[in-house]
Design a protein around this nucleic acid. Structure first.
Lengths: 122, 122
DNA sequence: CGGTATCCCTGAGGATACTG
DNA sequence: CAGTATCCTCAGGGATACCG
């Protein structure tokens, strides 16, 4: 019994350790808008208004907020060109690009899952 | 200009196509409790009350609800043993195990991101 | 033991209007 | 153009009590 208790404790500990980084990653990717923005930027640098158009349904407020967060995490770079009127360009940072593999795995699994669900549905 | 418009349309379309499966995958993994439960089950089959203990902080209601959803997606299997009192065992399905790679990628990226943040913090 | 039923609260996100 | 400011809604999740 003592052994079993220790086993559970160890399991719990190990789970927690595994969980924290996964949470960290998901905190960055989850929410309604971060991924749409990232995907849009992976196709090339974009200005605020271009993103507002291409990320369908997003409001200015959300776009602004999400970009700020992505910038704080150094996934996205914000460049201000000193023109009149001002032009602001957003781009992925090299660090942001390291997300590619994670996103790809999500995409692969998700696509496969969708097929499965549809198959069952019929 | 026409070219540019077409380009944007294509980009938008491609983004949407890439986005849907990623969303599908995240819908399964996001939320506060699904991953903790999955990780716990990856260490072995567990009964309801064992999960309630090991998934720290979860309420019965949430555990029940999340398990039902995981079961509906065929990621988790629920087995009822006809004893008195009744025993219910939860386990990962083979399909559920296919999530391993995705979770691993999230974990790798998250761990690396955490290191980065901590380094900056100092 | 393995859950439901209720009621409640917070915060993510939306709508709209405004600004340097 | 590139955002802020304000106000509002709603669903995810918590607390507590109860049930076969």
């Amino acid at each position: 019994m003592v052994t079993k208790v220790k086993e559970n404790e160890r399991t719990h500990e190990t789970c927690t350790k595994a969980l924290i980084p996964v949470r960290d990653a998901l905190d960055i990717l989850s929410g309604k808008w971060k991924l749409p923005i990232i995907l849009a930027l992976q196709f090339g640098n974009k200005r605020f208004s271009e993103l507002a158009k291409q990320v369908h349904g997003i409001t200015d407020k959300m776009l602004s907020k999400e970009l700020r967060e992505l910038e704080m995490n150094e996934l996205v770079k914000r460049t201000v060109y000193d023109t009149v009127p001002v032009v602001v360009e957003y781009s992925m940072t090299p660090y942001g690009e390291t997300l590619e593999k994670v996103i790809e795995e999500l995409q692969i699994w998700g696509a496969q899952h969708r097929k499965r669900i549809i198959r069952k549905g019929k």
